[in-house]
Amino acid sequence: MFRVEDIPYIPRPAKPTPRDRPLSRAEVKRLLLAAKNVPHLYIALLLMLGTAGRATAILELTWDRVDFHKWTIDLRVKSSGPKKGRATVPMNPGLRRALLEWKETSDTNAVVTFNGSPIKSIKTAFNTAINNANLDNVRQHDLRHTAAVWMLEGDSSIQRISQYLGHSSLDQTFKVYARYQPGFLKAEANSWLLRGLCGCAGLRSVHDHTRCCVVG
Rank of each mutant, 00 (worst) to 15 (best):
M1D: 13
M1I: 15
D6R: 13
I7G: 00
P8I: 03
P16H: 05
T17F: 11
P18D: 11
D20A: 01
L23S: 01
S24K: 05
R25G: 14
A26T: 08
A26D: 14
E27M: 08
L32C: 08
L33C: 10
N37A: 11
V38P: 04
P39K: 15
L41H: 02
Y42W: 10
Y42Q: 12
I43V: 10
T51P: 00
T51E: 00
A52S: 12
A52Q: 10
A52K: 06
T56H: 04
I58P: 00
I58Q: 00
L61Y: 02
F68A: 11
H69D: 15
W71V: 12
W71T: 15
T72K: 08
R76N: 06
G81M: 15
K83I: 07
G85L: 03
A87P: 04
G94Y: 09
L100F: 03
T108V: 07
T108A: 07
N109C: 07
N115A: 11
I119D: 08
I119Y: 05
T124Y: 02
F126S: 10
N127Y: 05
N134L: 06
L135G: 04
D136W: 14
N137M: 03
R139H: 09
Q140F: 07
R144P: 01
A148S: 03
W150Y: 07
L152T: 13
E153R: 14
G154F: 01
G154R: 14
G154T: 09
S156C: 10
I161M: 09
Y164C: 04
L165Y: 04
H167S: 06
S168F: 07
S169F: 05
L170G: 14
Y177G: 08
Y177W: 09
A178L: 12
G183T: 05
E188P: 07
S191F: 12
W192C: 15
W192G: 10
G196N: 00
G199T: 08
G202C: 12
L203S: 06
R204L: 13
S205D: 11
D208G: 07
D208V: 01
H209D: 02
R211F: 03
R211Y: 03
V214S: 15
